[in-house]
Simulated scan of single mutants.
Amino acid sequence: MTSDSLRPTERHTGQDLIKWIALITMVFDHMRLAWPATSDLFVLGRLSFPLFCLAIAINVSRNQAGELFTRSNSRYLALLVLFAALSEVPYRLVSTSGTFNVLVTLTLGLLIAWGVQHRTLASMVLAGGAILAAYLLSGPLMFGFYGVFVPAALVLAIKRPELFALLPVALCVAANSRAGLFEQAAQLEPFAILALLTAALAPLLGLSLYWAPLPFKVLPVTQWSYWFYPGHLVAVLGIRTLM
């Protein structure tokens, strides 16, 4: 669910590792939709969304400021919109949350991140439209109004970590507020506290992996990951139907 602006020989190991962790924790999180006994994996699943947002932020931060209308950016947006549409039916069949699938939130987040990166009139208009859409759709939007700002906050954190490293932390926690975790955490329920801590630490973990000089290679996560999202939803639905 991410675009790759680098050639294969220039791949960044940390970025691929971030994508793999995001994909794997997403699958763990969704296992509870087929096997309710695995509901505790919800905590581990709080890593997934921030790491997907970071993968977007890394790609956006590599754009030359002001060069918004490129073939790469157009393909990136088109793929997110296409797979958001393709994923909505299987997501609605497998989930009872009543929200749109996460690619809708990530698409709006991409537009806002472009506004932060490029700061041109066109990018600011797109970002403003995305913010308005997020406000109007905050009810059915996965991770709500705050969630769409996470990619942009991570773009800022990549550029100026000394100023903005904690901004995505706060937004990731706020994006989980609708799950009732705040109320449960206030009552000192360990499950809720762990979930919020995981959401808070996820962007810091991802940024550490991105900046760290990792001494190993990781299997690249390329455009097949777009198909993986609706595909894994169909697989979860199939498993649940057979059980």
Rank of each mutant, 00 (worst) to 15 (best):
L110H: 03
L111D: 02
L111T: 04
I112T: 09
I112L: 11
I112R: 05
I112D: 06
W114L: 13
W114C: 08
Q117Y: 07
H118Y: 08
H118M: 03
R119D: 14
R119V: 05
T120F: 03
T120M: 00
L121E: 12
A122G: 01
S123Q: 04
M124R: 09
V125D: 02
V125W: 11
V125H: 06
A127T: 08
G129S: 04
A130Q: 04
A130V: 02
I131S: 03
I131A: 13
A134S: 12
L136P: 01
L136A: 12
L136V: 09
L137Y: 09
G139N: 11
G139Y: 11
G139L: 09
P140I: 09
P140H: 03
L141Q: 03
M142G: 06
M142S: 13
F143S: 12
F145Q: 02
V148C: 03
F149S: 00
V150M: 11
V150H: 05
P151R: 00
A152H: 05
A152M: 05
A152V: 04
A153I: 05
L154P: 10
V155Y: 07
V155C: 09
L156G: 10
L156T: 06
L156R: 15
L156Q: 10
L156I: 09
A157H: 08
A157T: 09
K159D: 14
R160Q: 15
P161H: 13
L163F: 09
L167H: 05
L167N: 05
L167A: 14
L167E: 04
P168V: 05
P168E: 09
P168W: 07
P168K: 02
V169W: 01
V169A: 01
A170Q: 00
L171W: 09
C172F: 04
C172N: 13
V173P: 02
N176W: 02
N176T: 10
S177A: 15
R178F: 07
G180Q: 00
L181I: 02
F182S: 03
F182P: 00
F182M: 10
E183L: 14
A186V: 05
Q187L: 15
L188H: 14
E189P: 00
E189V: 14
P190Q: 10
L194F: 14
L196Q: 07
L196C: 09
L197R: 01
T198D: 03
A199H: 03
A200L: 04
A202H: 04
P203S: 01
L204P: 01
L204Q: 08
L205M: 13
L209Y: 09
L209A: 11
Y210N: 10
W211K: 15
A212L: 15
P213A: 13
P213K: 14
L214N: 12
L214R: 13
L214E: 12
P215N: 11
F216K: 10
F216A: 12
K217H: 13
V218W: 10
L219E: 10
L219P: 00
L219F: 15
P220L: 10
V221I: 14
